[in-house]
Amino acid sequence: MRRFHYLAPRRLDEALSLLTPDAVPLAGGTDLFLRMERRQTQPDAVVDLKRIPDMDRIEPSDGGLRIGALAPMESLAASSLIVNGYRALAESARVVGSIQTRNRATIGGNLANASPAADTATPLLALGATAEAGRVDGSRELPLEQLFLGPGRTALESGELLTAVRIPAMPGRTGSSFQRCVRTAMDIAVVNCAAFVKLDEDGAVEDARIALGAVGPTPLRALSAESCLQGRRFDADAAAEAAECAAHDARPIDDVRASADYRKDMVRVLTRRAVENAFQRARGEA
């Protein structure tokens, strides 16, 4: 590993001023450490964010939730706020890597690494999350869709840091679900999928969001699957049609984990399961 300066600021503004183009932020390190070991990233300075108080906080905010970028997966999976209100997110955090990894890997790192297969990205897209980007002279919020530009590439500008994720309030008659297909428990998702539905008083879909992972250069919304559900009540046909639409929305490639065809098939299966499960939850049945 190439030598570097290790910096451990205790305040966010200090950290932001240290994030020069030759510096990288360090959260859980489960990805960064390896990239540095392999000399894929060779920063002059590493800015460890873990000494900054409260950057790992999960707290109610504007009726919804604000999750500090440093919150580790295990805290997300154990948070009653997330488990009770945003189940798809809790379900995704619970299956990331091993307990060792979940104790270190953070939500901010999972998103800022911009892996197309990032497990927390799909539920956050389905739940309508926004990313909070801080910089020395202020901060901005952007819809999560706009954060991801391609594998490993985000819309964060030089000197900007992902400081938190915000998820809107979840009113009644809403439900969400996360589904994933892996080769082995510790592997990266072959496909992952999250669904969110909001039902009206008659049980018809008022709002639906479906997100897919590992089937395109970024985690993506399955927009035609979403509009296919609009206004409909749940039945087997609705779920099957949404699943078919999602398979069209997916743009997978062949790689070492799976073929594009297999991924499309899995998008069908996972979307059907996620939609069905989200409906059940919106009706208070699961």
């Binding site: 290790y6 451990a8 360090l26 390190g29 489960t30 450490f33 390896l34 590493v46 460890d48 873990k50 295990e74 307990i99 060792q100 990894t101 104790n103 270190r104």
Partner: peptide, 14 residues
């Protein structure tokens, strides 16, 4: 908390 010591800088344990 259980962690893998191979992916942590010693400095982080200060």
């Amino acid at each position: 908390r259980l962690v893998d010591a191979c992916l942590i800088f010693a400095a982080e344990a200060d």
